[in-house]
Write a protein that binds this DNA or RNA. Structure first.
Lengths: 166, 166
DNA sequence: GACAATTGTTGTCGTCAACAACAATCTTTC
DNA sequence: GAAAGATTGTTGTTGACGACAACAATTGTC
């Protein structure tokens, strides 16, 4: 019972009266130029995909950015904070807080670099390694949700099209 | 298989002085699992596309969300705030501030609805109409930037794949 | 007419990008 | 080899944004 008959700006716009019933207000609102904009579609999709990621990894309390940091450090142990920030396209100021959190949770450790005493060499702890393995399994599950949502081929197409941005 | 163990910044600092190879530190860092994640690619792409939008519409000081609000109101005059918020997937609490700004700049006006005295019917002002026309031209220019970046067919593919989210 | 639901509004909280400034530490240059 | 400049990690601020909660006014329902 969602047939909310609402009267606001009605009467004007789009008569949905070609036989089909009006299910929700939002449905018969024209977006016009908006539908042709890649940015709008991408924004809506990104919101959906992040929410699913956050929900799927909710049990372990890991958000997309945290996951990306752990993944990069796991694959490239010893990186400096600057290198990680540049690789992921996040500000080094922001990475500081992310690492504070991850270090507090014993996933990551900052080792003072001998070669360059300004920088820290980033490593996963043993606990962080096993945890990341679990996160990756959950992330794979999330990726299957994406497949279910847009289709297997479409997901691969998407990755191919956007490969240059990774 | 690019798990190259590297030592922090040390010699990886690559003497960039010679001008030879080694474009940037970030280039030879493995992302591992990250490259297979749709969410990561989409996030990076969205950042790029929004920055281009903001830059291209910088002269008129219009951000993506503001543009989407103006577009929907322009295409559906008389809508309530609730209807606009629901259609664009933004909170009505947030829309309040957006409309405050747009109304202050004389693009939009809130008309007290006769039918439902709780709600406001949203309309573009005459000034808002002409301004939106200009914004749309700039937005089209931005969209051409997207084409230049990922290719004409890829952009269309993208819109097709993500059509369900608009 | 009493009670629940909706609309616009105000406020708080947390995430995130973009800057700016700073101390400590390289790197370059003279 | 010392001064000048650049880099690294850090702290702080600003503003856009999503998610919630509470509220008065109004409408719908029973």
């Amino acid at each position: 019972m969602r047939t909310t008959s609402r009267e606001t700006g009605d009467s004007s716009r789009k008569r949905a009266g070609n036989g089909a019933a009006v299910r929700d207000v939002a449905d018969d609102i024209g977006l016009d130029a908006l539908v042709g904009h890649a940015g709008y579609a991408v924004r809506r999709f990104q919101i959906w995909i992040f929410q699913d990621f956050i929900k799927t990894l909710g049990a372990v309390d890991i958000r997309p950015t945290q996951y990306s940091v752990l993944t990069v450090i796991g694959a490239n142990p010893g990186l400096s904070q600057m290198a990680v920030a540049k690789r992921l396209g996040i500000e080094r100021a922001r990475l500081v807080h992310l690492l504070d959190s991850l270090e507090q949770r014993k996933y990551v450790k900052r080792v003072k670099s001998k070669a360059d005493r300004r920088s820290h060499a980033l490593h996963l702890t043993a606990h962080g390694e096993t945890a990341l393995a679990k996160f990756k399994r959950l992330a794979a599950e999330h990726e299957r949700h994406v497949e279910d949502k847009i289709g297997k081929e479409n997901r691969e197409q998407l990755l191919r099209i956007l490969a240059g941005f990774t």
